Simulated assay, not measured.
Amino acid sequence: MAVTETDTRTILLEVARYRPGEDDKPVFQEYDVPLMPDWAVLDGLNYIKDQLDGSLSFRWSCRMGVCGSCGMNVNGEPRLTCGTFLTEYGEGPVRIEPLKGFPVIRDLVVDIDDFLAKLSSVRPWLVREGEELPLTTEYAQTPAQLEAYKQYSMCINCLLCYSACPVYVLDPDFLGPAAIALAQRYNLDSRDMGDRFDVLNLDDSVWGCVFVGDCTRVCPKHVDPAEAIQRYKVTAALRSVLPWSRR
C-alpha cells in the first residue's frame, strides 16, 4: 500500500470508535487518507491502521469478497469494505460504522456469537439417515438438481443481510435471512434427508419476515435470502395442510 509524495488528493473518513466498558458511547474520529483510484474502503482503513492510528480495530481477511469478514456500514449501507471503492464517494466524507444489530466488541468489530448459534440451529450441512461414518458412497447429482439450491449456497456469512434487516435489528430473536437461506439450501439438496420444519416454521423464523427485501438488495453474492424465506413459507403452509409433504 505504497503512497508517494505526488498523491496529494485525500478523502475524509469518519470512523466509529467505541470501547465498551471504557467509553460512554461511540464517537466518530476523522482521518484524511489518500484518495487513490484503486483503493477500497478497506485500503483506507488499513492506511489508518498502518500509518495514522494503530489502535483502530476492524476485521478483514481475504480482500477478495470471499471471506465475508470485512462487512461494515458505509454511509449507512451494509457493504463489504473490500469491494467498496473510495472513489464511489467523491471527495467524501465517508462514514464507517459497525454492522447494525450486533453488540460491538471494539470500534468496528462486532460479536457474531448469536448468529453462529442461529446458523448451527438449522443444521447447515448434509443430513443423512441410516448411514455410518465414514461415508463412502458417492451421490451424483444432475445439473438440474444442483441448480435447485446453487444460488443459496453462495452465502459467505458476511452478515450484511442481518444489518439491513429491520426485523432482526428490532427483534434479536429472529432467526435471520442468512440462516434461513442456508437452511433452504440444504432443504433443496437432493442428497439431504434432514427435517428443519420445527426450526423454520416459527414466528421468530420465516413467519417473522415482513418481506422488506433489503436482505436481498445488500447481498454481495446475489443469494436472494428474501426469496428463500418466501419459498419456505409456501412449503410450511402446505405442510401444515399436507403433513406428509417435507420439501
Rank of each mutant, 00 (worst) to 15 (best):
A178P: 00
M193W: 01
A181I: 04
P124Q: 07
M154E: 14
A178D: 04
R106W: 03
D107G: 06
L200W: 05
Y162V: 09
G213Y: 07
D111L: 06
R196G: 03
Q151S: 10
L119W: 04
V110P: 01
S153N: 06
L116W: 14
L133V: 12
E91G: 07
Q184K: 13
G90F: 11
V94P: 00
Q141K: 11
V109H: 05
S205R: 04
Y89W: 11
C158W: 06
V167I: 15
L160P: 00
P166A: 03
M193N: 10
E147M: 13
V199E: 06
S205P: 10
P166T: 05
P134I: 05
P103C: 08
V206S: 00
E132T: 14
L135F: 15
A148P: 01
L116I: 06
D198F: 00
A117F: 00
S190R: 08
E88Q: 15
Q151W: 03
N187K: 02
V109A: 08
W125T: 10
A181T: 08
D198L: 02
T142S: 15
L202T: 11
L119G: 01
P172A: 13
F85A: 00
A179V: 06
C209P: 11
V206F: 12
Y89L: 11
F85K: 07
T142E: 08
R191K: 11
L202R: 15
E97T: 12
R191I: 07
Y149N: 13
M193F: 02
A179K: 03
